[in-house]
Simulated assay, not measured.
Amino acid sequence: MEHDNTENNPADWLKAELEDTLDEDFELEMSEPALSLELRQMFKQAHSDTIDRRVYFTELLRLQSELIKLQDWVAKTKQKIVVIFEGRDSAGKGGVIKRITQRLNPRIVRVVALPAPSDREKTQWYFQRYVPHLPAGGEIVLFDRSWYNRAGVERVMEFATPHQVEDFFHDVPEFERMLIRSDIKVIKYWFSITDEEQQLRFLMRIHDPMKQWKLSPMDLQSRVRWEQYTKAKEDMFARTSIPEAPWYIVKGNDKKRARLNCIDHLLGLLPYEPVPHEEITLPERVFNPHYEREILPEELFVPEKY
């Protein structure tokens, strides 16, 4: 019987992982016939100096292996960590969250992406619907948008009154200090892209049938109100970047660099250490000479089309 040596040779394992992974460049080339050649060229020209694909995946895999060490340390030491991801629509928040969680245990590292508040939730204390999702000991929670909706979309689209917005700015520093006093580490990232880059990404989504679901009426309005969002963002930074939980800005025009930079920075903020593990050995299979495997009906099996 031949044995797969990739698990014994890190270089072979890395090569196999690189060959097994597709990124947006491949997706762009091989799919979406509706995507015009002109739009493809615009995308390539705008990102002509992007990081080399092999370098990107090599670094991503290295950082993901460190995230596994972080996960083990969080679980063992019962850390409680909140990471907030904010930014303009299409800024790349979802992409970095996907790469962070890709190889981690969803019981330890989970994503919270809340929908618009219900009528009942609108009558509650503003932070109330976020509190049940905060981490217990041994958990990391990644908020794909957060209570900062009030400082951004709710303010710009006038879903919140000026008085409600002002109350939020008054309350949020103390709310986050309360979390920190409860031994919850709060980390806040803002993904920053240019006006031109957002326009290009929206055009890609409009003309890409596989990504049109990502566009909502609110996203389209964010183009119209670009300058209002800019002013709201600057006000938010000025009033909510506290020493205990400062804002960190990730330059997001290059998605690949943004992902690597964000993950690397996140790892650098936390004093994790390798956790010793007992050596894992596969137990021997128990064979019963009198056991006969039951023949299952054919209709239970998924048809093998491929």
Rank of each mutant, 00 (worst) to 15 (best):
F143M: 08
G95V: 01
L134E: 08
F143P: 12
E174T: 06
I184R: 09
D72H: 13
T77H: 15
S90W: 06
G137F: 12
Q64E: 01
K98W: 01
F168E: 07
P106C: 06
A91Y: 02
A151L: 00
R62E: 10
A151F: 02
V141H: 00
P162D: 09
F159H: 14
V96K: 05
F168R: 04
K93M: 08
P135L: 07
P117R: 11
R155F: 05
R145F: 13
K98Q: 12
D144H: 13
R155W: 02
V156A: 13
A151P: 01
H170S: 04
D52K: 03
A136C: 10
P115N: 04
L179E: 07
M157C: 12
R145Q: 12
N105I: 10
R99T: 05
P132C: 01
I108V: 14
T123N: 13
S90G: 12
A113W: 05
V82H: 06
V156P: 08
E86A: 08
D72S: 14
T58S: 15
E166H: 06
V111N: 01
R99E: 00
R53N: 03
R177N: 12
D167M: 05
Q124R: 15
R110M: 00
V156N: 05
R107N: 15
I140P: 10
E154Q: 08
E139Q: 15
V131Y: 01
R53D: 03
R181K: 13
N149T: 11
F127L: 13
G138S: 14
T77I: 04
I100K: 06
G94L: 06
R88W: 03
Q79S: 14
I140V: 13
E176D: 12
A91K: 02
L70T: 04
V83L: 09
F159D: 07
Q79V: 02
I97V: 02
K98L: 08
V141F: 00
K98R: 13
